[in-house]
Design a protein around this nucleic acid. Structure first.
Lengths: 346, 346
DNA sequence: CACCTTTCTGAAAGCGCTTTCAGATAGTCA
DNA sequence: TGACTATCTGAAAGCGCTTTCAGAAAGGTG
């Protein structure tokens, strides 16, 4: 490079590294590192000099080098079934909030409701070197646990409880059963279910099981034609309810896997001249933003997604820092009563 | 370590590194690297041996070391104003889809509608060593561009057009103006706006400006009491419309910053005994899932978020790979006519 | 002022990969 | 078979940090 005056060219040539800062401050890179990482034991004047030099040069430490050196990436991964699903977005958002405060970066991936895909995405994250991993649900590809173990990083599951593994969630079967019991207490006898896809989805499955068991405990049954599985969304809810009507005597109440599905079912019911809740009581899941504003306002099972995300974040951070934690955190879902449920019409 | 039989302990002690693979395959780490990165020029038998050894050991390359060595992180960052907003979720999702295909990881951060926060989050990502950055909108903290430049990584802006910087988006003013003109053509003369917070938000600002200009061009004005700014959400929409009614003669049509706001405004209108679209025409923004299902179905400006995300991904990938790209990609928003708009009642 | 602590500091050794460079091996041709 | 070229391969040098370790400086004491 030509010996041009000034130091303007230098920063443009390449981004400054610790050595540049050290040089400018008249210290060694060891001291630079000490100052920048806040470790004590650096004399005030040198500390000052390093700070100023770093500032002047606009120095930012190279993350890869730091990660390689410390053996910690300061990143955690999360694999969720559907990154566009409101509940998962909320959990990711609150999860990230906690991580961010602790200096960690969140890397999120989308798996769809498929164990193979989940394995693939999780592996991808593991290769990147995440220091921790968040998953959804309790069933995963058998290889996944081996791989996580091999990397020696902590993992936490969310949205459902687990018998063995660390988890933050709630008893999907029990909360759905509570909704079913509420309907039964109102006097309903023909109760239907519209759930999202249940393949590779323990939450959805557990909810239906919980409902079926609650019914059975009261001498009722979940008729197969009233047990509908659809892909998510408002459109799915409409289709699902239409299907349900096609099979024999209609239910007087339904429990839906999400509020979107419930919304769709309500639309379809109205289109068919059915009154909600007069002819049909409807319960959703999640307590989405719009649930209280539907007409009638939707009774729903509120899942405390934000709290789950926070707790999962706290759990992982603690374990990454080597602090002890409880394996299982239960954050119960809550039945929010609104206007879409009522006793069945005589 | 004790000399126990078998090689079971070894993998548990620490995760395998390239040297272990090299040793097991009887080659050097250079060859291991060559095989694993697909570079040609390795004899078939050695390649075979390396592959098997890597498989046996469950070897995955250390990402930090690789990043440090190649000077590329294979990660890109994205900073969006609100990670829970449907439009941004969709853009992130489609953006990630593209990146993932190209082997990149997406790291997303939440900035809120605040330039300082955006700067902070972006800096955080830059420190991590992302190879590219996606931002939303055309106004940012002045320091941000300097920092990005210093890192020498490509950046792309989304959701709005820019005079100078790389971008993928649409003309917010023009599309909102189109909606206004549509309403004027229907015969509306008192047109109101309920937008989200406009501070540090060029999109929201541009939309209102566009509407005001469209009105002016037809000899109309946007009355100050009909220009409402609220925080997002259904509740915000309700509040906003209530505020609007408080100030003089009510508008016969409103354009809202999101479909949620529009939904809220419609609820409030109905609560006040106003008929939509008879007494009030309503236009939203985004074409959310629920828009076609509202009663009446919502006329809205559809923003092609998924396409924007794809295009932004393609743009960044191309630049990171050193391929030439066009600076500006325009993906026009579209006015979707549904039942919430009609000529004003006589 | 000599001696012993205590506090700071820099040299140097990694972290685990990629990549260059030169040497080894295999292949080709006369 | 020997000379020469084309392929392969391994040793070694980074990449830019952190951290250990030993030595230097500073501070206290008799």
């Amino acid at each position: 490079m030509l010996d041009l005056p000034g130091e303007i060219l230098e920063p443009l040539a390449r981004s400054p590294v610790a050595r540049d800062v050290a040089h400018r401050a008249g210290v060694s890179t060891a001291t630079v590192s000490r100052v920048l990482n806040g470790s004590a034991g650096v004399r005030a004047d040198k500390r000052e000099a390093v700070m100023r030099a770093a500032q002047d040069l606009g120095f930012v430490a190279n993350g890869a080098a730091r990660a390689l050196s410390t053996r910690r990436f300061m990143a955690v991964g999360a694999v969720v079934p559907n990154i566009e699903n409101e509940a998962f977005v909320r959990v990711l958002s609150s999860f990230q909030e906690r991580l961010r405060q602790a200096g960690y970066t969140l890397v999120a991936a989308n798996a769809g409701y498929d164990l193979e895909d989940e394995l693939r995405e999780a592996t991808f994250l593991l290769e990147r070197g995440v220091d921790g991993l968040m998953l959804v649900g309790d069933i995963h590809h058998p290889d996944l646990h081996t791989r996580i173990a091999r990397h020696g990083i902590p993992m936490v599951q969310t949205f459902s409880l687990s018998r063995e593994r660390p988890c933050v969630g709630f008893d999907n079967a029990a909360s759905a059963a509570r909704a079913a019991n509420y309907l039964i207490d109102l006097g309903h006898r023909r109760i239907g279910v519209i759930s999202g896809l249940r393949k590779d989805n323990d939450r959805g499955g557990a909810r239906v099981t919980g409902i079926a068991q609650a019914l059975a405990a009261r001498g009722l049954t979940l008729a197969p034609e009233h047990d509908i599985e659809i892909s998510y969304g408002i459109g799915g809810g409409r289709d699902g309810f239409r299907q349900m009507l096609a099979g024999g005597p209609p239910p007087t109440a339904i429990i839906c896997g999400t509020d979107q599905i419930a919304f769709g079912a309500m639309i379809e019911a109205r289109a068919r001249g059915l009154d909600v809740p007069g002819d049909l009581s409807v319960i959703g899941h999640n307590d989405s933003d719009f649930a209280p504003f539907l007409d009638p306002a939707l009774t729903t099972i509120r899942i405390h997604s934000a709290e789950i995300g926070h707790a999962a974040g706290d759990h992982l951070i603690a374990r990454m820092q080597g602090r002890p934690v409880v394996r299982l955190t239960q954050i119960d879902a809550e039945l929010i009563l609104r206007a879409s449920t009522a006793p069945p019409r005589r």
